[in-house]
Design a binder for these strands. Structure first.
Lengths: 133, 133
DNA sequence: TGTAGTGTATCGGTATAGCGATACACTTTG
DNA sequence: CAAAGTGTATCGCTATACCGATACACTACA
């Protein structure tokens, strides 16, 4: 696992790191049990504060992608790898949807907006379905 | 046009206002030339600072949804209404995609992530297509 | 058991988002 | 041309996001 980071992209560094780990898992570059680079190593290599790497790792742990062991290191979790195939199917669905949206001549912003709207609506409908009254 | 606002939702007030205007346009509740409520009126009704309404209106203008005339008021633009039908088609596309994604047992966060990934990828591919080299 | 390697916790600084208070400027209408 | 109704501009406050410096704590292993 080798990290790269763009200081001037405006995208938070810790998010860039998270993204790269997730992507590596989905492509198979990282597999269950694999150890991630040391927090310090990453920090030194990228000339970044250790805290920034800590934050990335902590959130990845919170999302269930990795397991962080105090004193030992950070490792890819089995469950994370299991989702990789599902993710590939999801990608196909999303890709075709975006193609159709692009052909409607929508801007990225408009696409995002429609998407967020429908997502919110789907969520509330699910909530209503669960409710007992 | 009647606004509502949720102070404790965490969603910025000016975004809530923008959302409601856009939605009203898409549903036909607002039509080309219709005047939006006065900045002051909205501010007073919702117990909100005029600046907040100003921001919402300004961004809506920047997005081409409304036209703001100094001293006169804010009005829905023709072009904005024209997009409404396209938006409805887009909604259908997105909705079915989200349904399929939900059946894959993805969380909202995961859905967003796949979506943003594919959107970014589609954009870069479009760029490559335009490039001459 | 101690030392090197690992993650963790605490504090602080800077930039920015969001919102409010208030004074200003344009336009319509009589 | 004046008054009422409209949008505009400027300033400042507060919360929070992001990142850095530095000291602490756990674990593995010789």
């Amino acid at each position: 696992m080798l990290f790269r980071v763009n200081q001037s992209s405006g995208i938070p560094l810790y998010l860039q790191l998270m993204e790269q780990v997730k992507h590596a898992v989905e492509t198979g570059a990282l597999r269950a049990g694999d150890q991630l680079p040391t927090i310090r190593k990453v920090a030194v290599d990228l000339v970044v504060n250790p805290n920034t790497v800590v934050r990335a790792y902590r959130e990845l742990e919170h999302e269930g992608v990795i397991e962080v062991k105090h004193g030992s290191g950070a490792f890819i979790r089995e469950t994370a790898v299991g989702r990789a195939s599902v993710m590939r199917k999801a990608q196909a669905v999303v890709q075709s949807a975006i193609e159709r949206l692009s052909s409607l001549d929508l801007s990225d912003e408009e696409i995002r907006r429609v998407f967020e709207n429908e997502l919110a609506q789907a969520r509330t409908e699910k909530q209503l379905g669960k409710a007992k009254t």
